[in-house]
Nucleic acid binder design. Structure first.
Lengths: 99, 99
DNA sequence: TAGATATTTAGGCAAATATCTAAATAACTG
DNA sequence: CAGTTATTTAGATATTTGCCTAAATATCTA
């Protein structure tokens, strides 16, 4: 289960949403990501850290570079959160069945 | 199109997410909502205002009371935002067709 | 191991946020 | 219209956030 506080805080910043759109197209190094913004690398690093803490993205070092990717599982869980709001009380029966 | 900045900022607070869950069950007055929290009414009023600015909720005065409700349209649009992230480039053809 | 490249960590500051108390506004009621 | 109830607005304060520069860490290469 995602920590919705961290997830929505992460999503509340336009720089971070743009990073997500970049990573949707392809995994990328921190430097490549920073290249898409008019902002210092430490600032982008900060945003990447916020995204990482939210679990929306993961990172993996490969040699000198650190590659970032989207964590689709968490996005799916966020979709479920909204689905549960828009679709009243579905799953109620299943919950009870869980004896 | 929703203002994602305002929407995600609104969702980033646990009090506001709990308000959303309350309103999922039934429309409610500001006072009824405040009754569910250990917080002053002005603070809840502030949270309701943030939710209203995000368009996630609407308000309507009925006599002395102001009733709050969820705006399902915006929730659906947020679901679409996530759907577009999880489902790569779908709709691309349609976009081009829009000549 | 010294130098170069990639990235993060630390520290500081300005702006935004969440909360409170006190006061203002709106609507009903006798 | 005076009093009561429902809600918001204003003003103050503490915390968090986003950005920067400077310094530190990690890795590769000669």
């Amino acid at each position: 289960m995602p920590r919705f506080n961290l997830v929505f805080k992460a999503l509340a910043d336009p720089t971070r949403r743009k990073i997500i759109l970049l990573l949707k197209e392809a995994d990328m190094t921190a430097g490549e990501i920073a290249g898409h913004f008019d902002m210092t690398k430490p600032s982008i690093s900060h945003h990447l850290n916020v995204l990482k803490q939210s679990l929306l993205v993961t990172d993996e070092r490969k040699g000198q570079n650190i590659y970032y990717s989207l964590n689709m599982t968490v996005f799916q869980e966020v979709i479920n959160y909204f689905f549960n709001i828009t679709h009243k009380n579905e799953g109620e029966i299943d919950d009870e069945k869980g004896k």
